[in-house]
Design a binder for these strands. Sequence first.
DNA 1: GTGTACCTGCAACCAGCTCGCAAGTACGGT
DNA 2: ACCGTACTTGCGAGCTGGTTGCAGGTACAC
Lengths: 164, 164
Amino acid sequence: MGHFTDPTRQNVNMRTESVRAFERHAWSADQAAEALRAHGCRVTRPRTAVLRALLEHDGPIDVPALTRMAEFHEPGIHEATVYRTVATLAEVGIVTHVHAGHGPALVRLHGDVALVAVCQDCGSIEPVPAEVVDALVTGTLLTTGFVLEPGHFALEGICAACAA
Amino acid sequence: MGHFTDPTRQNVNMRTESVRAFERHAWSADQAAEALRAHGCRVTRPRTAVLRALLEHDGPIDVPALTRMAEFHEPGIHEATVYRTVATLAEVGIVTHVHAGHGPALVRLHGDVALVAVCQDCGSIEPVPAEVVDALVTGTLLTTGFVLEPGHFALEGICAACAA
DNA sequence: GTGTACCTGCAACCAGCTCGCAAGTACGGT
DNA sequence: ACCGTACTTGCGAGCTGGTTGCAGGTACAC
């Protein structure tokens, strides 16, 4: 799978500045718990487990995989609970979810770079450089008045490796 | 719903050149039938009904709505048949389908402009100008090597009307 | 006209996701 | 430290969008 689906490898030296910016996020476990409480939500063991799983896994991840990771911290956690937790975290502003073509939606921490491209061949997920995203958003805004929200959708195509 | 979901209204004078270009397509019913035969596919009454419905309805449309329109030409046509017909037409290259967020996929004739934006508020569908699309595709290609296929996904955000 | 391979209608099925409900638990109040 | 209540969770049923297996029908080559 993609660069961001394997939490054990980092390979930071192979990545550009914009790629590393994509992986950075503004949330720690404490900040997230604080944000939850600020919204009148309780900080429960299942929610903490989902948050820890999200923090461990940089990059977009689908709910079944996220559940398996959260299960490491909270055995027996139910997938429906993870769906509800993700919805709660989205309301609070900690995560967003993107729809990448046919498959399930992908959950990710609400970071600074917000647009990803999914390979139709191998399913890998790659970030799109911030300057390209900016050009798209401002270009669309100026020509049509449409305000794009890059955190809520994904681009599709063929990645460099599969195209070769 | 959006500008392209109501086949009875045209309002051409309110639209820009790029918008009208979006509505033009390269297919007539005869050309499409020819393309089907060239691929070894039979030209049946249900398929003709779906094609006529697509030609009547400029712009993206989901399968349930397309089925209702096709039913006008071929009463009793089954939704599963329309799904299969759309898949066949996609193989032949007559249509593409885009995934627009949460809802069903949208089917459209394989025309000249390939990227649309869907309003999360009102569901309206607007084309993105060709120059913005080109900048996105070439910018992504040059910086990451990723080959985007704008015909297969949609952008999301808030349209000018809803933003106001 | 005839045969056959493809296509259609139908219903069952599947994936992704949501919901209703009873049991459990975080946390403000005391 | 304890209690009470309102929020959360696990669980299973259910919903939506889409696919598939199969028996019967039909386009089209001959």
